[in-house]
């Protein structure tokens, strides 16, 4: 069952990702992107990373992509961009390059032996004790609290910066 679901989600993710670059309309690209993100979330659920799956949907599919949709609709591109779309040789070339990189990565991952890591049992124990969210929160707010806070400040700076840039004309 899990294997069938994995191939389903993997196929959806790859198909969605190809759709993003192949689709002629920006809205179509965006929906393919949402499909790919959703399929990734499904893969995370299969890996028992429920929290990550939920955050993937809430943050990426539910918030960031909605803002993308908003911007695409407000820009209302019309059909002028279509002459800029390149096909044929460029498509083959880019797929070749991406395929090569993916192959190299797969080769590297195959030889490092990731499956020997702590993973599995330790994560199961943490989940049994704190629940799916608590297991991440405990690590995040104890071991990694400083990087977490720094990321928060970075985001705050980015928000203030965006506000300053947007307000400059007024």
């Amino acid at each position: 069952m899990a294997t069938i679901l994995f191939y389903l989600f993997a196929g959806l993710a790859i198909g969605g990702a190809i759709g993003v670059v192949m689709s002629k309309s920006p809205i179509g690209s965006l929906l393919f992107m949402v499909t790919a993100l959703g399929a990734m979330a499904g893969t995370f659920v299969l890996l028992e990373a429920h929290f990550l799956a939920a955050i993937q949907i809430i943050v990426y599919a539910g918030a960031i992509m909605v803002l993308f949709l908003f911007v695409i609709m407000l820009l209302n591109l019309g059909h002028d961009y279509q002459k800029d779309l390149k096909g044929g040789a460029f498509a083959v070339l880019s797929f070749g390059v991406i395929g090569g990189i993916a192959g190299l990565m797969a080769q590297q991952l195959g030889s490092t032996g990731l499956e020997d890591g702590p993973g599995g049992a330790a994560i199961d124990a943490a989940m049994a004790e704190h629940g799916a969210v608590g297991a991440i929160a405990t690590e995040l707010y104890t071991t990694y609290v400083v990087p977490f806070e720094i990321t928060g400040i970075l985001l705050l700076v980015a928000i203030v910066g965006a506000l300053v840039l947007a307000k400059r004309e007024v």
Binding site: I27, L31, H50, I55, I57, I58, L69, A132, V133
Partner: peptide, 24 residues
């Protein structure tokens, strides 16, 4: 599901697509 309320938030955040796409 172990994520409970986050599941609800995830799906309610997807609900906006239908509305926006319908309008567009």
């Amino acid at each position: 599901v172990p994520i409970g309320i986050l599941y609800v938030l995830a799906f309610s955040s997807l609900a906006v697509y239908g509305v926006v796409l319908g309008g567009w």
